[in-house]
């Protein structure tokens, strides 16, 4: 009872904080005599959403697709590589240091190269999202798969269990909390990656739109674009959280 009322008051405070920010924004613009091209009011921002010229649906859809493709590619590649590493120590010893070094590259710096390699459009921006999201997923998954207690491996081996049984029954579920912690970090990075890609070169998407309207100092549309990008990120992050809640019991989760 106490716990639930505690949760309730925390939720209430969280909502209040967000509403407070909105109110502060409104007051700042209304009372501060700030020019609209510097900071639009919340109302002006909302109004931009109803202007069909901005093509919000298309642009949001394109950005979401880029993030989605890059993110799931990162998830697939990251988990598969991590799995291969647990199966072969040599493979791990060879590739892991290399990947750790590659992880040091600021992925944003790869942008111009990725455009050379993949032209422009949805694919290079997905690759941008992929390149930035894959490392945390790979590294945390590899760590999670390594954490299996050796005695559990003995237990399965003594029963002549197969490698696949070991993976599906022990290693993968054991690594899930780690995979999810990598997925959460990756989700936020994938959004950033796709937007950077759009900034560099694209003809659709919310990042592209921001550059278009920047020329005319159309800040309400830029604000709206940022809000929509954030919402896409929140939706992705939220889905990951939800999936984690469904798949990982409370005690096994990593904060």
């Amino acid at each position: 009872m106490e716990a639930s009322s505690n949760t309730l008051s925390r939720t209430l405070l969280a909502v209040l904080a967000h509403l407070g920010l909105l109110a502060a924004w409104y007051a700042f613009v209304a009372l501060g005599d700030v020019p609209k091209y510097v900071m639009p009011s919340p109302l002006a921002t909302i109004k931009a959403l109803f202007d069909a010229n901005y093509n919000w649906w298309l642009n949001s859809g394109v950005t979401a697709l880029e993030i989605f493709v890059g993110y799931f590619l990162a998830l697939g590649v990251g988990v598969t590589l991590a799995l291969l590493f647990t199966w072969s120590k040599t493979l791990e010893a060879f590739f892991m240091p290399l990947l750790v070094s590659l992880n040091m590259i600021p992925k944003v710096a790869l942008g111009p190269l990725i455009i050379v390699w993949f032209k422009y459009g949805i694919l290079p921006n997905s690759m941008m999202a992929f390149s930035i999201a894959v490392f945390p997923i790979l590294l945390t998954t590899a760590r999670g798969l390594r954490e299996t207690e050796p005695e559990l491996l003995d237990l399965v081996r003594a029963l002549r269990g197969s490698r696949w049984q070991l993976f599906t029954k022990i290693q993968l579920p054991g690594a899930l909390p780690y995979i999810f912690s990598g997925m959460k970090v990756g989700a936020i990075l994938a959004v950033a990656g796709a937007i950077v890609g759009e900034f560099l070169s694209s003809d659709k998407g919310l990042g592209y739109l921001m550059l278009q309207v920047q020329v005319t100092l159309d800040t309400p549309a830029m604000f709206m674009a940022v809000i929509l990008i954030t919402l896409i990120g929140v939706a992705l992050y939220g889905s990951v959280l939800l999936l984690e809640r469904l798949l990982v019991p409370k005690d096994a989760r990593i904060a």
Binding site: E149, E151, L152, D154, L155, A158, L159, P173, D251
Partner: peptide, 28 residues
């Protein structure tokens, strides 16, 4: 299939309920 093992740590699978944990060798 005629060896059962118990270790110093219980090594139960955290994500499985007790009954499912006990069933692990039968599944394998």
């Amino acid at each position: 299939r005629d060896v059962g093992m118990v270790f110093q740590a219980p090594l139960l699978l955290k994500w499985r309920r007790i009954l499912q944990n006990v069933l692990l060798p039968a599944e394998i």
